[in-house]
Write a protein that binds this DNA or RNA. Structure first.
Lengths: 214, 214
DNA sequence: AGGTGTGAATTATTTCACAGCG
DNA sequence: CGCTGTGAAATAATTCACACCT
């Protein structure tokens, strides 16, 4: 079976985002052309992306919005609730916990952890910050499978080893450092410094840039 | 002149990150092999990336750490101070303003803006949150060239038009929506929902995934 | 007509492999 | 030697273009 590229998955996520909009507005069908325009890609790309997973469209008509929305949710695995822990009770952790889209898409934060004893026990939304020592048993009890890592780089790898040992199978890493995970664990990293430096590069070397957008 | 891919620039940023570490530790040279290992890429990739910009290495020896660090900083445009405004005085804005790497790499926040009258005037670090109406004249006076957009999707495009009109030439967008900018403006988007959904997809379709890492 | 689905062509990116220099 | 720099080869991603359905 053919492998799906990361870039494809990101676009699926974007299609879903806009299809939901269209669905709410009651639009029945959308063409690859319209979807491409909304998402800043090309009609051929839209059709190719979707065709990996089936034939959802009707020739001459376009894609049924409501139906395709459901399909994409299924494909992306959003048909279930995902339990998420946040490791690191700092500003980034707070921003994420607050993030509306989080809950909206079926991601539930079941615990926030910090290694700083001063933070442990302080209120955090409806709950309180917990100690790292509790993490392993909590994850097992709650059945959390995703962790958001919002900690400094210093001992990021040690923390990763702990949470992987606890049974976490996917990690969204905000620490600006390279971490490694076993093959059965998925890892995505978001690196602010890298993005900012990309902009700095673009401003400095306008003529060398691939394209102006992202 | 050959165009530089975005992926290349991201790796340069990563090389810099680790070269700085090595430099601090007093290591004089580093081979493409060592660098690749630290950054999770391949030696050939490291050499190809660097060779776009010059011949920095010595055959049989490797790359001079201190010198290459300086070169990369220059290439990435980090030789100067970049003035940054943050639009949206919420949690994400706060997390970013707080981010150490920000200042460290020569990015200075010169203003924080919000359209909510209740937030305008409230303290923000050493400064206070300012009104959107002040943005255009402030940007011109301060010479800010980068904006971080940490606002809801609703009227993101209108805000973009305003800040582009004010003279901002690079935008880091955290709003989970597609925005368009004129060709002379650089845009990078970070989309939490997309990352999370990528993990959800990976957990759901383990066998379809391109690779386990990022 | 109007718009999907898809093999084929194109373009971009990564990896190979080796000549050549210190 | 050891390791860079780089064309050439391999792979991956995107775009084209058109047969085909409604």
């Amino acid at each position: 079976m053919k492998r799906i590229a990361d870039s494809t998955v990101r676009r699926l996520s974007m299609y879903l985002r806009y299809l939901e909009d269209l669905d709410t507005r009651g639009q029945a069908t959308a063409s690859s052309d319209e979807l491409a325009h909304l998402c800043g890609t090309t009609p051929a790309q839209v059709r190719k992306d979707l065709s990996f997973f089936g034939s959802f469209g009707k020739r001459g008509l376009g894609y049924p919005v409501h139906e395709l929305t459901a399909h994409l949710r299924e494909i992306l695995g959003l048909g279930q609730e995902w339990k998420v822990i946040i490791v690191g009770a700092g500003k980034i952790g707070a921003a994420l916990a607050n993030y509306r889209g989080f809950r909206q898409r079926g991601f539930t934060v079941v615990g926030v952890y910090d290694s700083d004893p001063a933070k442990v026990g302080t209120p955090w939304g409806a709950s309180t910050v917990r100690a790292m020592q509790d993490l392993t048993t909590d994850v097992a009890r709650e059945g959390a499978s995703i962790a958001v890592l919002a900690i400094p780089s210093e001992n990021a790898q040690a923390v990763v080893d702990t949470i992987v040992g606890a049974g976490i199978r996917a990690i969204l890493n905000f620490a600006p450092t390279q971490i490694t995970v076993p093959p059965h664990v998925s890892l995505k990293s978001v690196n602010m410094a890298m993005e900012l430096e990309g902009l700095s590069f673009a401003l400095t070397n306008a003529e060398l840039i691939d394209q102006g957008a992202a």
